[in-house]
Design a protein around this nucleic acid. Structure first.
Length: 658
RNA sequence: CGCGGGGUAGAGCAAAUGGUAGCUCGUCGGGCUCAUAACCCGGAGGCUGGUGGUUCAAGUCCGCCCUCCGCAACCA
């Protein structure tokens, strides 16, 4: 057998600092669909995913949890693998950067770059937090405060190895220009070009400030810092440097599928390192967009936001893997950000899957059972409508291929759905229930049933890369259980003969969207609570996790706040208002000025209790008459409707409060 | 002047190399009863953010303006 063409596709290796969310799922689902598509087309596919397990953050997290870093990542990685199993991700290899095969090959790659002279020892300068023993960049450490502990960070230096990234700027620009496909979509390429033009600095590739990493071969004080460790996974997983069989077969990769935020690393650092090592470059880097929640980026710390449940496991339990995959691939256009809400998801599932596809299969199988004794008949007639259906069904395959070549999953699925919709329309045009009433129309009725069966068979092939379980179920119902799914069959119309159909359960049950929304909302609340309970070792973290937003008045801007003049004062006289039960009349000394302020706190405090107390006064409030006496300001109290506390301070009288 | 991306029917999104602005949902009206209250047909609804240019022709190319949003070296 002649060697089949190979296809090597990768996802990023994910950072297991906690469980993965719908965004990671989105990326991996795309890679999986592509891998399955290429396999169906006959390619020899290799699909790699994995985890990037080293670094400061992991080390710290593990310490907090009282585990060794390895124990910690083992736990998280087990969860990730479980998720991919649930999602039916068909990866061929899962690489962990803590595996021996990776460690030794990274060291070998490091030495390769060292020997070319592209690595040198220098000094890393950054903002250092002593407490956390971590370096931060200026943008991370806002206002010179450590983003983790909030303490001050100070400029510091440490010895570090550097890679001569700057040397490759011109070659990278040339790569983009001579090979526009290398980096897609185009907007990402423009960004990278601009980034390179503003000047590349050499890249720090080692650290001494933490130890959870791969040791630098020449110098055990250092561990290899993120990029050289992580990016090389794409070749170490293939056996680079010591087991050439897979490497020779699959490298260079056809596609590195990555999120837009790490395009830079894959399209600048990675090719530069490969150039230095004189290895072939991947054929393509594709940067996809993000799923947004209410316009914000999804983050690992959220399993749900508002009412939207974004824990893929929950969604799969309720709606199934196929429905979730379909939604992710159909709803969003590759490369662009898209908004995730429960509602758009449920609508997609209902309209496309339940109403269009599921219903088509059901009504067809039902009619074949009813009108043809459950056996797919032969086509004995033909007219223009039949031809139109056949043409649309048979020509979809090529359109899907064209769109898949561009990673336009959404458009590819749309192509498939034009077939589904045409089939539904075909039923309406042919009205088989009328044909069935007239014995003389039996031949035409048979044709309709046969053509529908063939069309659905084609659909079952076309959707296979996206929803193989649904595809299998359709084929089972059509009596095609005996036949393998073959891509080329999607271009053939006459393939079925006397298959025995069998009506099954609804492929995609129709969802009551209102009801689902309400239930998902409850689940979101539940998840938030569980999360708070489960994760809280540190009482502050617990508080943060359990935090529920306060119900507040309309937001104000700083200028509004700045208009208020708060002053510190001392109550030097306190007495009851002669004409009001609830009011106390105070004389408040604020530095040079003494003024009268009336407060409605007579039910909470006696004049004696208030005398001599330090208070905070809203000093520029317009004076107001209260039962015949003027009040020149207000005092601050904390209150909950029942009980009242003075807001106080020990600062000198007259001072401004901000 | 840091870099970059958007602004298209009520909503959410599409529109290689410029050539009658499409899709899904919603809405209004109709059809059908095989089917998961589903399916099919038709209508209404857009000066494609604004403005000035290039062109026989601009959502698409160029200038300026308004506006929303990402990124700035460990978040898919």
């Amino acid at each position: 057998m002649a060697d089949r063409k190979t296809y090597y596709i990768t996802t990023p290796i994910y950072y297991p600092s906690s469980n993965l969310h719908i965004g990671h799922t989105y990326c991996t689902v795309m890679a999986d669909a592509m891998a399955r598509f290429k396999r169906l087309q006959g390619y020899d596919v290799r699909f790699l995913t994995g985890t990037d397990e080293h670094g400061q953050k992991i080390q710290t997290k593990a310490e907090d949890a009282g585990l060794s870093p390895q124990e910690y990542v083992d736990g998280v990685v087990a969860g990730i693998k479980e998720l991919w199993k649930t999602m039916e991700i068909s990866y061929d290899d899962f690489i962990r950067t803590t595996e021996e095969r990776h460690v030794k090959r990274v060291q070998s790659f490091f030495m390769k770059l060292w020997n070319t002279g592209d690595i040198y020892l220098g000094e890393y300068e950054g903002l250092y937090c002593k407490e956390c023993e971590a370096f931060w960049t200026e943008s991370q450490a806002k206002d010179c405060k450590c983003p983790d502990c909030g303490r001050e960070v100070l400029p510091a230096k440490e010895e570090a190895y550097f890679f001569r990234l700057s040397k490759y700027a011109d070659r990278l620009l040339e790569l983009y220009d001579s090979n526009p496909d290398f980096l897609q979509p185009e907007t990402r390429r423009n960004e990278m070009k601009a980034f390179i033009r503003q000047g590349l600095e050499d890249l720090c590739i080692s650290r001494t400030s933490f130890s959870w990493g791969i040791p630098v071969p020449l110098n055990e004080k250092h561990v290899i810092y993120v990029w050289l460790d992580a990016l090389t996974n794409y070749i170490t997983a293939l056996g680079y440097s010591d087991e050439p069989e897979l490497y020779d077969k699959y490298w260079p990769a056809d596609v590195h599928l990555v999120g837009k935020e790490i395009v830079r690393f894959h399209s600048i650092i990675w090719p530069a390192m490969l150039m230095s090592a004189e290895l072939p470059l991947p054929k393509q880097v594709l940067g996809h967009g993000w799923l947004l929640l209410g316009g914000e980026k999804v983050s690992k710390s959220k399993t749900a936001k508002g009412n939207d449940v974004i824990d893929p496991v929950v969604l799969i339990e309720r709606y199934g893997v196929d429905a979730l995959k379909y939604f992710l691939l159909r709803e969003y256009t590759f490369g662009q950000d898209g908004n995730f809400t429960n509602e758009v998801m449920l609508r997609r599932m209902n309209f496309d899957l339940a109403n269009d596809l599921g219903n088509l299969v059901l009504r067809t199988v039902t009619m074949i059972e009813k009108y043809c004794g459950g056996v797919v008949p032969e086509a004995k007639t033909n007219d223009e409508i039949d031809d139109d259906l056949k043409n649309i069904a048979v020509s979809a395959r090529e359109k899907v291929e064209q769109n898949m070549d561009k990673f336009a999953f959404s458009a590819a699925l749309e192509d498939i759905w034009t077939v589904v919709r045409r089939a539904n329309k075909y039923i309406d045009e042919k009205a088989p229930w009328i044909l069935a009433k007239d014995e003389s129309k039996k031949a035409e009725l048979d044709t309709v049933m046969k053509n529908l069966a063939e069309t659905i068979r084609i659909v079952s092939v076309l959707i296979y890369p996206f929803m193989h379980t649904a595809s299998d179920e359709i084929r089972k119902q059509l009596g095609l259980w005996y036949a393998d799914v073959r891509w080329e069959d999607a271009a053939e119309f006459e393939m079925m003969y006397q298959e025995k159909v069998k009506r099954g359960e609804a492929l995609f049950p129709r969802l009551d969207i209102e009801k689902e929304l309400a239930e998902l909302s409850d689940i979101a609340d539940e998840l938030a609570k569980n999360k708070a309970a489960a994760e809280a070792e540190d009482p502050v973290d617990k508080a943060i996790a359990g935090s529920v937003p306060l119900k507040l008045k309309e937001p104000i801007v700083y200028d509004d706040f700045d208009k208020i003049d708060f002053r510190v004062g001392t109550i030097i006289r306190a007495e009851k208002h002669p004409q009001a039960d609830k009011l106390l009349v105070f004389k408040v000394k604020m530095g040079s000025e003494v003024r009268q302020v009336i407060s409605g706190v007579a039910e909470d405090f006696t004049p004696e209790e208030m005398l001599g107390r330090k208070v905070i006064v809203v000093a520029n409030l317009k004076p107001r008459m209260l039962r015949g006496l003027e009040s020149y300001g207000m005092l601050l109290f904390a209150e909950n409707g029942k009980r009242c506390e003075i807001v106080t301070t020990s600062a000198p009288d007259g001072e401004a409060v901000n």
